[in-house]
Amino acid sequence: MSLRLYSQPLVITDSGGKDSLVCRELARRAGIPYEVQHNLTTADAPQTIYYVRDTFRKLEEQGIQCTVNKPVYKGMPVTMWTLIPQKKFPPTRGQRYCCQILKENHCKNRFITTGVRWAESVKRKNSRGVFENFTSDISRRTILNNDNAEERLLFESCTIKGKRICNPIIDWSNANVWDYISSEHLEANPLYGMGFFRVGCLGCPLAGKIRWTEFRMFPTYERAYQRAFEKMLEGIHAEGRQTKWKTAADVFSWWMEEETIEGQICLSDLEQWQSDNE
């Protein structure tokens, strides 16, 4: 379908994690034409960066095209540390602008695979399918969870451009993933051997309390977030706006979900941020 609809190979999106590793191996064993793309978040652990770099070098030696996509926002290069001051609000579970800009803003009008799995969250179980397409016309979007869906034939004959997604291991459990990696002797990101159960942006709010462990292991990233929060406050104050946060440390403490402290954000702060970014 990728070759027929887009005249380009299937794109295997690679975050550097275990699920991406399995998807790469499945594509290789399938014998299909494919390429691999990695979206640079700028907040990944050094081990992930080195792992992706080494993996891409080996794939390129095999003739597989590999691309590292650098993030862009409003037409300009951006990093996690410059994005936060621009947004004037820390990324949270409910406001994940970082994912949209740093991870999901590439591969437009391409057919891609991801390592999304239902076992990762209830939300994904309820909203993600084996097969997905995304177009600007919501009424034309399709999510299929089995090969016998009535929409499948109609969808495959549709030539409307847009991002199409295949999630080949969506029904795999964590045990399935690790059993496959072990049985096929695949080389996984070394972070897993250091006790990490997930690989992604350090400090991600979705990681919960494990973030404290991440920052103990990688203190440079904690300092980077604090500097970004400081610049964020400077930008807010430069516009004449007020916030109950007094220092970058206050922002960081709230962001890390510590006990309520003086400077805790209120609902009006969030409403103001949403209004400024509409």
Rank of each mutant, 00 (worst) to 15 (best):
E278T: 13
T220K: 13
A175L: 03
Y73M: 05
Y97D: 02
D54I: 01
N39T: 12
F131Y: 13
I261N: 07
W255S: 12
Y34F: 15
E278A: 14
S121R: 05
S7T: 08
C66I: 10
W254A: 10
T220Y: 05
Q86M: 14
S253V: 04
E239A: 09
K246M: 08
S183G: 06
C158E: 12
P85A: 02
L26F: 09
A27N: 03
D179R: 12
N189C: 13
S268C: 08
F218H: 11
Q37C: 12
Q272A: 15
K163M: 11
Q95D: 14
R28D: 04
D14W: 14
I170S: 00
T114H: 08
K70G: 06
K70S: 14
A248S: 13
S127Y: 08
C201I: 08
G263I: 05
W273T: 11
N148Y: 10
N126I: 06
E151L: 13
W178N: 01
G129P: 05
L144Y: 01
E25W: 10
S127C: 06
Q62P: 02
P168F: 05
Q37D: 09
I12A: 13
K244P: 05
N167K: 05
L154G: 06
K244N: 13
L3I: 14
Y180W: 11
F155Y: 12
Y180F: 15
G16M: 10
T243E: 08
A27V: 03
Y97L: 03
P33M: 03
K74L: 10
R211T: 15
T42P: 02
A27Q: 01
T42Q: 08
Q272S: 14
I32G: 02
E132A: 04
L191H: 07
A149C: 09
E132S: 04
L3E: 14
R96H: 09
M256I: 11
K18N: 04
L153K: 14
V116C: 03
D171I: 12
G193Y: 08
M256A: 11
P91F: 08
T247G: 07
C98P: 00
R152S: 08
K58Y: 07
W273E: 13
S121T: 08
T135S: 14
R117M: 09
E104Y: 06
